[in-house]
């Protein structure tokens, strides 16, 4: 018996409508990344983001203002503590503004990473009941923090106005560095999300890791504190590139040199390996979650 794999042969006009053929089998683990399928499910991705936003600020009085509270409070704390030390911030930039311009992209990164790494475990209920590209889950987990980020950016703009700092034309690079932060969060987040399905230890590791990572990145101090000969190693942390670039795009200062390429390469490598690992393990998610 020949199974008609090519619906073009169909004579019944009804069949013209349903050309979709789904093949189920033990698939090749090195198969493609399934990005086109991801694209065809983009509506669902927006629904997930929309749900996260709705749920996060439901039954709160201040709503999305809470998104700004975290970086603002951290900025106040650091201004009154670390900020008093000489040389922590660069010369010519008020420390509060310097710290906040680091904390805003850092919050985007940290929140996205935390949400992404717990996203699959939190979505257990639907993962065991319905099919959709699993990659949607960690990706959309980051989505709602973009909205929080935009709210924080308004506050950052007001602060710049207050301190009289005007961005140069370099500000056009800002979206690129924001995407850079997200790509880094996604790369690490996808790795952790997939491991978390099997080992719940990840949940605890992630929280600690994000905190430690913040002090290993130039969030509240300037990266020029690091000796010149170690800059390349320091740049292996993609967030070094993100934060330096982000501040440069907003407030000028020294233009990122070639060490930023190290950051970009590190970030893309993590993302690429995470996608491969995710695709290799996702077929067992529903069984072990």
């Amino acid at each position: 018996m020949v199974v008609s794999d090519s619906p073009q042969e169909a004579t019944d006009p009804r069949q013209e409508l349903d050309r979709t053929v789904v093949i189920i089998g033990a698939r090749n683990p090195w198969r493609d990344l399934g990005l086109s399928e991801l694209w065809s499910h983009r509506e669902l991705m927006f629904f997930f983001v929309w749900r996260d936003l709705k749920v996060r600020y439901r039954q709160t009085v201040f709503g999305a203002l809470w998104a700004v509270m975290q970086p603002v409070l951290l900025m106040l704390v650091f201004t009154m503590s670390v900020g008093r030390l000489p040389g922590v911030g660069p010369a010519g930039v008020p420390y509060p503004l310097f710290a906040f311009a680091g904390l805003v992209p850092w919050t985007l990164f940290g929140s996205s990473l935390g949400a992404a790494s717990n996203s699959l475990v939190n979505a257990e209920g639907i993962i065991t009941k319905v099919y959709f590209p699993r990659l949607l889950v960690p990706i959309s987990a980051c989505g709602s923090y973009i909205v929080d980020f935009c709210v924080s950016m308004v506050v950052l703009a007001l602060m710049m106005l207050y301190f009289g700092v005007t961005p140069s034309l370099a500000v056009v690079w800002l979206p690129l560095f924001t995407i850079f932060a997200l790509v880094t969060a996604l790369g690490v987040g996808i790795w952790l999300a997939a491991i978390n399905v099997r080992y719940r230890d990840v949940k605890y590791v992630t929280a600690f890791m994000i905190q430690a990572w913040m002090f290993a990145s130039p969030v509240i101090y300037t990266s020029s504190l690091i000796p010149k000969e170690w800059q390349w190693l320091y740049a292996l942390n993609p967030m070094t590139g993100v934060l330096n670039g982000f501040r440069w795009a907003l407030m000028g200062g020294p233009m990122p040199d070639q060490t930023i390429l190290v950051s970009v390469a590190a970030s893309l490598l993590v993302l690429a390996t995470s996608l491969v690992y995710f695709r290799r393990t996702e077929q067992t998610f529903a069984d072990v979650i």
């Binding site: 789904v22 189920i24 089998g25 993962i127 099919y131």
Partner: peptide, 26 residues
Amino acid sequence: SRITEPTSGRAELHGRVGALLEVGTG
């Protein structure tokens, strides 16, 4: 419904697939 993969063997589904394994999914 493609929630999990088989160990061996294959299946072919012709047409748009929907699954209802639970009431109130999501």
